[in-house]
Design a protein around this nucleic acid. Structure first.
Length: 237
DNA sequence: GCGACAG
DNA sequence: ATCTTGTCGC
């Protein structure tokens, strides 16, 4: 798959904010493709560990068939991590490996689901949104915990599958607290890019099974990163 | 000094 | 994210 190259990853916080401000107005929340033409969905996740006191990470991307839910392709990338985790700047830490892995894809997924926020972010520039500028495909943000913005809490959705409450800040919809399964904590859904919230919701709910509150491709990528981490730790590189 | 903090 | 034992429940 064709992925735009990057060239910007040893900057300071001010530079990161500048980049987010430049990209933010270019976010497009209109769907580029209709729901019924989505045939393949990719899940993206990373795992981390330390080796000789240095941080390493592995990124897994797993593509599944939207109908059968069968795995079509999986790729990964591994390497040293050079950017620390700072809330609000996750994309700068994770994008290098994400892009490296995406380049290896032979299939071109119709949509990417990320482990992290998209539009639900201080500058509407969570990792899912930011990644779309390199992937050029629709992206969706799936966070497991709530990122509080401007002191606004979320309203707990009803305990029913598919129940949700929108997260509205200063009159703008940032995302959605979504109960994907009963008796389980909600996830925090938001647009990444090139897609609207309702479509993101439909896609996400269509990818839920009994295994997890997370959509299947994200869950699979999560499991895969753990396997890969064990492998790379054992084989010291 | 204290609390907050996607992954 | 990661470090970690047991434990409750389908």
């Amino acid at each position: 798959m064709h992925v735009k190259q990057i060239h910007l990853f040893k900057l300071n916080k001010e530079e990161f904010v500048k980049i987010q401000h430049i990209l933010q107005p270019k976010i497009n929340l209109s769907p580029t493709i209709p729901l019924n033409s989505i045939n393949t969905c990719a899940g993206v996740d990373l795992a981390y560990w330390e080796q000789n006191g240095e941080p390493y990470g592995v990124c897994s991307i797993i593509v599944i068939d939207a109908d059968t839910k069968e795995v079509i392709e999986k790729v990964h990338s591994m390497g040293k991590i050079s950017v620390p985790y700072v809330s609000g700047f996750l994309a700068f830490r994770e994008l290098p490996l994400i892009i490296e892995a995406a380049k290896k894809l032979e299939t071109e997924p119709d949509v990417f689901l990320f482990d992290g926020n998209g539009y639900l972010h201080y500058n509407h520039m969570g990792v899912a949104t930011h990644a779309a500028f390199f992937l050029g495909k629709p992206t969706i943000g799936i966070a497991k915990t709530y990122l509080k913005i401007k002191g606004c809490d979320f309203e707990m959705p009803e305990n029913e599958v598919g129940a949700y409450t929108d997260i509205i800040i200063d009159g703008e919809v940032y995302g959605r607290a979504l109960r994907t399964r009963r008796d389980v904590k909600p996830i925090f859904l938001s647009c990444g890019n090139h897609i609207d919230l309702e479509s993101s919701y439909q896609i996400t709910m269509s990818l839920i099974n009994q295994e997890s509150r997370l959509p299947i491709p994200v869950r699979l990528a999560d499991l895969e990163t753990h396997v890969l981490r064990t492998f790379y730790q054992k084989n010291h590189g």
